[in-house]
C-alpha cells in the first residue's frame, strides 16, 4: 500500500519526464532529455522566474509582518498567548477557496476597499486591484502568513529569557539586545518559516487564477495546464520534477543552515578552551 501509492507516483513522474508526448496525448516511451531542453525556452524560463519572484516577494512580506507579530505574541501573558495563537491558526483551518473568494469581494472595482477609499475621499476613481500580480501576492500572503508566524513563534518562545535579561543588565539597549541576542537565536525559525511560505506560494495555481485573472502564470498553473489542458504529461512531469528538486534543495539548505547555526557556538566554545 505504502509502496504503491507513495512511491509509485513519484517514480512515475520521474520516469515520465524523460518520455515524449504521443500524438493524441498519452505517453510514448522514448527516452530523451527533450522535456528538460524545452525548459530553456524563454517562455518557460519567464514563468519560472515569475514564480520565484512571486515566492520571494510573498516570503519577504510574510517575514516583515510575521516577525513583529510573533515577537508580540511571545510577550503576551500565557493566557493571551494561547488565544492569539489559536486566532492565527483559525483562518488556516477554514476553506482556502473561501478565503481567496473573500479577497474578490474586497479588491473588486466596486469592492469594499475601493468603497472605503472613495468614501474617505482618498481616491475619486476606483483603483484596479483585482486581476493584478499585486492581488495574487496579497492572496498568497493571506494564505500562508500563519505558516510564517508559527515557526517564528516556537523559535522565539523557546529562547531563554535570562539571556535577554543578562544583556539588558549589562547595559545593552533594546535594539542592541534584539540585534545581538534575540534575532540571531531565532534564525532557524526564520529559515523554517521562509521555506514553509516560499514552497506553497510558488506552486499554488488557484490564487493566480482567481485573483490574478489568469494573467499571472506561475509554475503551478503551467503544470496544471500541461496535465489537464495540453495533455502533455511528460513535459508537465518534467516541470513538476524541476519544482520538486528546487524545493528539496531549499529544504536541505535550510536544514544545513539551521544545524550549523545551532552547532556553531558549541564548536567555538570547544576550540577556545583548547
Amino acid at each position: 500500500m505504502l509502496l504503491v501509492f507513495v512511491l509509485a507516483p513519484l517514480v512515475l513522474i520521474l520516469g515520465y519526464s524523460f518520455f515524449q508526448r504521443g500524438r493524441f496525448g498519452g505517453v510514448v516511451f522514448n527516452f530523451s532529455f527533450d522535456n528538460f531542453a524545452r525548459l530553456i525556452d524563454p517562455l518557460y524560463v519567464n514563468v519560472i522566474m515569475t514564480s520565484v519572484g512571486m515566492g520571494l516577494v510573498v516570503t519577504i512580506l510574510a517575514l516583515a509582518l510575521g516577525y513583529p507579530t510573533a515577537l508580540a505574541i511571545v510577550r503576551l501573558s500565557p493566557k493571551w498567548r494561547t488565544i492569539a495563537l489559536v486566532a492565527v491558526l483559525l483562518p488556516f483551518w477554514t476553506n482556502f477557496l473561501v478565503r481567496t473568494y473573500a479577497w474578490i469581494l474586497l479588491l473588486n472595482n466596486a469592492g469594499w476597499i475601493n468603497q472605503a477609499l472613495q468614501g474617505m475621499g482618498v481616491i475619486h476613481e476606483p483603483l484596479t486591484m483585482l486581476y493584478t500580480p499585486q492581488a495574487v501576492a496579497i492572496g498568497l500572503l493571506y494564505m500562508y502568513l500563519p505558516l510564517m508566524i508559527l515557526p517564528l513563534y516556537s523559535s522565539l518562545a523557546s529562547q531563554d529569557a535570562q539571556l535577554v535579561e543578562a544583556a539588558t543588565n549589562l547595559g545593552a539597549s533594546p535594539w542592541r539586545v534584539f540585534r545581538t541576542v534575540t534575532f540571531p537565536m531565532s534564525i532557524p525559525g526564520v529559515l523554517t518559516g521562509c521555506v514553509f511560505v516560499f514552497v506553497p506560494a510558488m506552486s499554488n495555481f488557484v490564487i493566480p487564477e482567481l485573483l490574478g485573472g489568469g494573467k499571472t502564470v506561475l509554475i503551478g498553473n503551467l503544470i496544471r495546464d500541461q496535465f489537464l489542458k495540453a495533455r502533455d504529461w511528460p513535459f508537465g512531469a518534467a516541470l513538476a520534477l524541476v519544482l520538486t528538486l528546487l524545493l528539496i534543495a531549499l529544504l536541505v539548505a535550510q536544514q544545513r543552515a539551521s544545524k550549523r547555526l545551532t552547532d556553531g557556538p558549541e564548536e567555538r566554545k570547544v576550540s577556545s578552551r583548547a
Partner: peptide, 26 residues
Amino acid sequence: IRAFAIAPALLPDLLMAVGLLSLFSL
C-alpha cells in the same frame, strides 16, 4: 521508510496530484 511514510505530508500537493493521476491512468 519513516521518511517515505511522512513524505506525502511534506511534498507539494501538486506533485502528489499529478503523480497519482499518472498512476491511476497507468
